[in-house]
Simulated scan of single mutants.
Amino acid sequence: MADSLIEVRDLERTFTVRRRTGGLRRRATTVHAVHDLSFDVPAGEMVGYIGPNGAGKSTTVKMLTGILVPTGGHLRVGGLEPAVQRTELARRIGVVFGQRTTLWWDLPLRDSFELLRKIYRIPEPTFRANLDRFVELLDLGDLLYTPVRQLSLGQRMRGDITAALLHDPEILYLDEPTIGLDVISKGRLREFLRALNAENGTTLMLTTHDLQDIEALCDRVIVIDHGTTVFDGPLAELHRQGGSTRTLVVDLVDEAEPISVPGAEVRRVEGPRQWLAFPADASAAPIVSAVAASYDVADLSIQEPDIEEVIRELYARG
């Protein structure tokens, strides 16, 4: 695609692993972390990049950022070859690697931001404007003079996201950005990322196990397994192909017969608690309304489908 910001063609990445075979002898085995991987990401798109553990997600992102060198295939990000033009590319991308912080552990949060300003040579007016905006949107005002080591995981994650965006990158790679955040903080972060994409046109590539993040942010999902693409399209289509289900967990005030409402099926009953399954691409609202209207409910919760289960079902269906 001529207008693609990220171009991946037949990408390969292998590692040599030596395993002991007895005594002092070891046998070299080639492991294909990424194999025959191809996709394009146009500028301004928000893409969910998901798959089971060990599927090759982190390896792909490391190649996209220039940390790892591909074994084979074609890879361009913004017209640059990441492993060769890594310094130039670093000024155009932002990266948040899950639980690996880019902040200085013993320094106050504000000092980490100042160091990044100097590293990226961010003009003072741009730095001040961006920092003020992100501090307000991510609620960091009371944390700026707190050492990073004293921050909670959720607070540090918000700091890492700010650090990744101070230099106005074209592309933002996010690995589990809502880990450790409470429900309210997750909602604020999702709103922030939507606004960032809408106002700045920032391209987002999101790796997560939380499908609510994907549903809230991404129109497109790329699923990989064993290092290659198994699905590329809308999330609703992924659920349809995988036949996945969400679960409405209903706690009734008293024990009752299995709940009967349109669009859902009772899969399990334990005392006053019942589990109702419904298609993952369907809205929970009418089912919740029907249950609340007909039964005496003490509590409700929704369990999202496990993406690994979705992929297993996808494979089982061929």
Rank of each mutant, 00 (worst) to 15 (best):
A2R: 08
A2S: 11
A2W: 00
L5K: 07
I6C: 09
I6A: 03
E7W: 00
V8M: 01
R9Y: 04
T14S: 00
T14H: 00
F15H: 11
R19D: 07
T21V: 15
R27W: 00
R27T: 04
A28G: 11
T30C: 09
A33C: 00
V34I: 04
D36Y: 02
S38W: 05
S38T: 13
F39V: 11
D40F: 05
P42R: 13
A43Q: 11
G44I: 04
Y49W: 06
I50H: 06
I50Q: 04
I50C: 02
G51E: 12
P52K: 04
P52Q: 06
G54K: 01
G54W: 03
G56M: 03
G56L: 00
G56Y: 01
K57Q: 12
T59Q: 03
T60W: 09
M63L: 10
L64C: 09
V69R: 14
H74Q: 14
L75E: 07
L75R: 08
R76N: 08
R76D: 07
G78E: 08
E81R: 13
P82W: 05
P82A: 03
V84Y: 00
R86T: 10
R86G: 07
T87K: 15
T87H: 12
L89H: 06
R91S: 11
I93K: 03
V95T: 08
F97A: 13
G98F: 05
Q99T: 08
Q99L: 11
W104P: 01
W105T: 02
W105K: 00
D106F: 04
P108A: 04
R110G: 08
E114V: 14
L115Y: 11
R117M: 10
I119S: 09
I122C: 12
T126Y: 04
N130Y: 00
L138I: 13
L140K: 08
L143G: 09
T146Y: 06
T146A: 10
P147H: 07
R149S: 07
Q150N: 14
S152M: 13
D160F: 10
A164Y: 08
L165F: 06
L166S: 05
P169R: 06
R188S: 12
L189V: 15
R190S: 12
L193H: 09
L193A: 10
R194E: 07
A195S: 14
E199N: 06
E199P: 00
N200S: 09
T202C: 12
M205D: 02
L206F: 01
L211G: 02
Q212G: 10
I214S: 02
E215D: 14
C218S: 06
V221M: 03
V221F: 05
I224V: 05
I224S: 00
T229I: 01
V230Y: 02
D232T: 03
H239G: 01
G243S: 03
G243N: 05
S244P: 07
S244N: 01
T245P: 00
R246I: 08
V250Y: 02
D251E: 15
D254W: 12
P258C: 04
V261P: 01
V261R: 02
E265T: 15
R267H: 03
G271H: 05
G271Q: 04
P272A: 15
P272N: 13
Q274H: 07
W275H: 13
A277M: 08
A277Q: 05
A282Y: 09
P286Q: 11
P286D: 10
A290E: 11
A292C: 13
Y295H: 15
V297G: 13
D299F: 09
L300V: 07
S301A: 14
Q303N: 12
E308C: 08
E309N: 13
E309I: 11
V310K: 10
A316R: 15
A316H: 08
